[in-house]
């Protein structure tokens, strides 16, 4: 029985970078040979979610949302547009524990394994730490360093903040960084006052956003005072109020994210064993250069 991976992401009518992480991770996974077939679909780009499943040849489809948290998109928009008879209760989630459920779409004769979003998978914690390592060019970063995990935050969906808090708690429990805080763009505690929340001289700031765009390249850098105009870029690190701020940009562009996508599908039962010689096992070693 052939299996396909379908990565579903938001995409954008305005920002070409929005779909780049989904494309890059799909290419990396394709190069790794873990799936017979890999496709992407988007809310704002093409193929649309509505047309997505018909583009897949395989009978078994593992649908992995490239979204940060459980909520409106994962519980309503994606299943509705994929024509899945899905209730949020099917996941039996506490807001960060959605795993997978198996459903039959109405427009094609296939079985869909609908997975929880990448953002709430436990492996995401490792991606955040990896991001801190890469932005500081220090594989042992932690001692004497503060880490801010930054989310969008919205009062309309409590799960949005839960996902951020979840990973911040897990990293704190590892006792690797001197301080770990969950901060938000649109709710308290706010990222604007990032230095108020840390005593450490060095603070790594990792935004849990899928793609780089207005929020991660302009909003947050400007709010934190890294720059007056994010369109002109910013220094890494930037000295603010006696702290060095190491701002990482959207987590979704991190190559290790491809592993989280794969883990989601594997958790749902996909056969993702590497073919032939596995090399060093890191999917990102096979990664194509992104544009």
């Amino acid at each position: 029985m052939s299996e396909a991976l379908l990565i579903v992401a938001h995409g954008s009518h305005l920002n070409p970078q929005s779909s780049t992480p989904a494309q890059d991770h799909a290419d990396a996974l394709r190069a790794s040979g873990r799936f017979d077939e890999i496709r992407e679909a988007y809310w704002k780009e093409e193929p649309s979610f509505r047309n997505a499943l018909r583009t897949v040849t395989a009978d078994e489809v593992y649908v992995v949302p490239l979204f940060v948290s459980e909520g409106y998109f994962t519980e309503q928009v994606i299943p509705r547009e994929l024509r899945l008879d899905f209730e949020a209760a099917d996941w039996d989630s506490d807001g960060t524990s959605a795993d997978h459920t198996t459903l039959e779409p109405t427009d094609v004769d296939k079985r869909v394994h609908y997975c929880g979003p990448v953002g709430t998978h436990d492996a995401m914690t490792d991606v955040i730490v990896r991001r801190a390592e890469t932005v500081t060019s220090n594989d042992d970063v932690g001692a004497g360093v503060g880490l801010a995990v930054v989310g969008h935050g919205t009062k309309r969906n409590e799960n949005s903040a839960k996902a951020i808090q979840y990973h911040a708690d897990r990293i704190r429990d590892r006792d690797r960084f001197d301080e770990v805080r969950a901060l938000f763009m649109d709710e308290d505690p706010e990222v604007d006052d990032v230095t108020d929340h840390f005593e450490s001289d060095d603070v790594v700031v990792v935004p849990l956003f899928i793609a780089d765009g207005y929020h991660t390249q302009e909003d947050i850098p400007e709010d934190m005072g890294l720059t007056d105009d994010g369109r002109g870029g910013y220094e890494v690190p930037t000295r603010i109020d006696g702290h060095d701020i190491w701002y990482a940009g959207a987590i979704g562009t991190e190559p290790l994210m491809a592993d989280v996508v794969l883990e989601r599908a594997a958790d749902a039962g996909a056969d993702v064993d590497a073919p032939e010689t596995p090399g060093d096992g890191a999917i990102d070693s096979a990664r194509a250069d992104g544009d």
Binding site: S12, L14, P16, Q23, E40, K44, E45, E46, D291
Partner: peptide, 21 residues
């Protein structure tokens, strides 16, 4: 063949094409 989905992203002037068709 997967290059096609990256080529389609911008027009001849480098402007983003949100509508592939």
């Amino acid at each position: 063949p997967t290059d096609a989905r990256r080529i389609r992203k911008t027009d001849g002037n480098g402007r983003y094409r949100p509508l592939s068709t």
